[in-house]
């Protein structure tokens, strides 16, 4: 599946972009469009439920390195961002801190990057009061954008670094936001490409190998990047490099990343003095319990 392929099918059949993605899915996997739509709807429902439930809450995470950040940002309220982006940031932190405390999440596209999509969709539901049925086409399209990346490259940090997880999540969120805001196919392409280009090369270097530092806060920063990219694209700013080619570049970059920077905990932030001290502290605490 390529994004160009979906765009072409949409223009030939006069179908909306997300419907074209469902048809492309049918022709590639044989999956029934109505069943796919219903199942994706279930995933979106869980995302909105969990965002509502965990919003701004303190969580007791497995390592204790995170867990209070969503509440801090929620309590402080809007500073520089719009209320929309503020809600997106809080929802994103809330989901990721819930994930780190063995809460229920939707691994869209992965568990480690599971906060970006909820950020955008919960803000649309809560702040802009977009009803569920109008959000679902955006979730279908986000999944299709992710599937383009999975087909051409990878969604796994262990294979392609964090660009493949958070980068992909941000591209999916930006594309969906542009689409749900009335953007045409070229705007969706640009929104996804613009944010992915900004996150290319991002490495996967979590402290101790655990899904907490820097993953939780990276989700929150990425959701603002996704919103920025959608805003640029909707204003008519186009990406010079189209989305499909950006994904090809991501694949090539991922292949040249050394093993130390692909979810092994052996490079980058994971090897800083503070990270090493934190891991020692965590392991001591585990041994006591």
């Amino acid at each position: 599946m390529t994004f160009n392929g979906i765009k072409q099918m949409a223009s030939e059949t006069k179908l909306p972009l997300h419907e074209a993605a469902l048809v492309a899915e049918l022709s590639e996997t044989g999956n029934n469009p109505e069943e796919t739509r219903a199942q994706l709807g279930e995933f979106l429902r869980v995302i909105l439920e969990e965002s509502e439930k965990q919003y701004g809450k303190v969580q007791e995470t497995l390592t204790g390195l995170t867990g209070t950040n969503a509440k801090k940002v929620y309590d402080r309220g809007v500073l520089y961002h719009s209320p929309f982006t503020h809600v997106a940031i809080v929802a994103s932190l809330s989901i990721c801190e819930s994930n780190a405390s063995m809460g229920r999440v939707v691994a869209c596209p992965t568990a480690g990057a599971s906060g970006v999509i909820p950020g955008v969709f919960y803000a649309l539901a809560k702040e802009n009061e977009i009803p569920f049925d109008h959000l679902l086409p955006g979730y279908i399209l986000a999944s299709a954008i992710g599937n383009v990346i999975a087909t051409k490259a990878t969604l796994a940090g262990a294979a392609g670094g964090c660009q493949a997880e958070i980068g992909s999540a941000a591209a999916m969120a930006a594309g969906a936001l542009a689409y749900l805001s009335g953007g045409d196919a070229e705007m969706v392409d640009s929104a996804a490409a613009l944010v992915l280009k900004s996150l290319l090369g991002l490495v996967c270097d979590p402290v101790g190998g655990f899904v907490e530092v820097p993953c939780v806060k990276r989700n929150a920063i990425a959701v603002t990047a996704a919103i920025s990219a959608a805003e640029l694209a909707l204003s008519g700013v186009s990406s010079v490099i189209p989305f499909d080619e950006t994904v090809d570049a991501m694949r090539r970059i991922g292949r040249t990343l050394p093993m130390e920077l692909r979810e092994t905990g052996l490079g980058g932030l994971a090897t800083t003095p503070t990270a090493k001290k934190a891991v020692d502290r965590i392991l001591t605490r585990f041994q006591k319990s």
């Binding site: 780190a100 809460g103 691994a107 568990a111 279908i140 986000a142 999975a150």
Partner: peptide, 13 residues
Amino acid sequence: SLLDVGGPVMIGP
């Protein structure tokens, strides 16, 4: 498939 990307629902992390 789209469902592999859009899900699954799971217990983290």
